[in-house]
Design a protein around this nucleic acid. Structure first.
Lengths: 250, 250
DNA sequence: GTTTGAGGTTGATGTTCATCAACCCAGGGC
DNA sequence: GCCCTGGGTTGATGAACATCAACCTCAAAC
């Protein structure tokens, strides 16, 4: 209502991928300097979403893939009989919606976990552009393949790991992803609620809560609400059963 | 040893995708008639593998994607600490190895569940060819996106479904995949052992066995070893929580 | 024929985690 | 100030499934 807010919603400024601070994480990574303008011509700056807002909803027409600029997004699938599964968390520079390329509808919903801004890559131009820019085609194959691997890793966790192992893994994954974004790997805000963690990892909220307190008693971390500080990363790695030089899986 | 066997192992005949009975399930599906020869030039007929043989092994150099011609393949991932997760079962016409496009090594192992013949699509030519044939690029995006969805569905099952629901889902998935291959949807041979089912679905072998006997007591199916006959598909659908017009998920 | 071993089934017991319930805490609206 | 609500924590109980162990079956090997 207040007219001052209008600024952001009105004509979105044209994005410059070149100047974007995420250019080394996001799509520009895969595009030659001289071709960057072709990418920019296709990318549309999306809205800003406030916490809890849907970026897109499952089964609505698939319009575009979404790159997170700031904030964070969770994706969820619902089954006919109504229960919901969180399928992923996405941080700035990461691409949401690759699982929907195979159909005309979104295969999942995407919800802003925070005040979140995004860029859009329209579906119809995605294939065309990656035809023109082989580097981009390569990158998309790479990303999708990675996404398959991540999802297999998640499946492995869900079927073989204990609650503690799952949570340790998630924390380490976030940690290293923050690090790649030049943020502290040991002291950060969880973008998601306990509920989302529980759902994602196939646990009950109560279990998540209990594991967090257990980890605190063991001095592995401190947590107040969403603020987390990892105190003993190596111990967490051991629990997560990762070799210390290992790349985290999701 | 017997010289008569040599026939198959010796010079593999050049494949003709046009004449292949799987052309409406496999890659040719996505390629225009006049371009089929370009696909055929790239496809290599692979060996024939006997039950239990590896088609490729995790962490070995990624050489090619594999299309199943006959038989069946399971894929598995192992973690450093040694436990193994079956990530998928592949029937004729299906493509194995899409999760490895993102690196130079295979992300999983592929093992023949039966006497199995395959076609190979060499990694280096995959991208080139899909650049030349936009229909193929589209198809690969489609396949990979589908694979992500499948894997998410699997994750959902592993985190939310009971043993009975999981097994019913798997049986229905196989059923409909056999049907698409013009085989009976109600009477078929399971390509995999109970062990593989258990691992794939995140259960103990004993649990799988018990569920099978329970299903038999309820007259939902009969099973003798790997031979299965589904007697009440609708009941199984209800258990699996699928709407009856629903596409199975993996 | 016998042996052997992998794959499969069945039963008894144990453990992890879900569920139910109560309670706390912080923030927003009034 | 007060209430209310959503998110989080803690404790007690129960259920689904894993685990352990024994046993069966059948086919291949000898």
């Amino acid at each position: 209502m207040a007219p001052t807010i209008k600024l952001q919603k009105a004509a979105p400024l044209k994005v410059s991928c070149q100047q974007c601070s995420l250019s080394n994480l996001c799509l520009p990574l895969a595009v030659d300097e001289q071709d960057l303008d072709r990418l920019e011509n296709v990318i549309e700056q999306g809205r800003i979403y406030s916490r809890g807002e849907y970026v897109f909803e499952q089964n609505s027409p698939f319009r575009s893939c979404i790159a997170v600029r700031s904030g964070a997004i969770k994706t969820t699938m619902v089954t006919e009989n109504g229960d919901e599964q969180v399928t992923g968390f996405y941080l700035p520079g990461e691409l949401v919606g690759l699982d929907s390329l195979s159909s005309s509808k979104y295969a999942c919903s995407a919800k802003a976990l925070d005040r979140t801004s995004v860029c859009e890559l329209p579906a119809d131009q995605l294939e065309e552009l990656s035809h023109k820019l082989p580097g981009l085609q390569h990158h998309f194959f790479h990303l999708m393949s990675q996404e398959i691997q991540n999802s297999h890793q998640l499946a492995l966790m869900l079927s073989k790991r204990t609650a503690e192992e799952r949570i340790a893994s998630l924390l380490l994954s976030l940690s290293s992803r923050f690090q790649r974004r030049r943020l502290s790997p040991t002291h950060f805000q969880l973008p998601m609620a306990r509920n989302d963690i529980a759902n994602f990892l196939g646990l009950a909220v109560e279990t998540v809560s209990r594991v967090f307190t257990r980890f605190q008693q063991q001095r592995l971390l401190t947590a107040r609400g969403r603020e987390v500080e990892l105190l003993d990363v190596n111990a967490l790695r051991q629990i997560a059963q990762e070799a210390s030089d290992d790349k985290p899986c999701f």
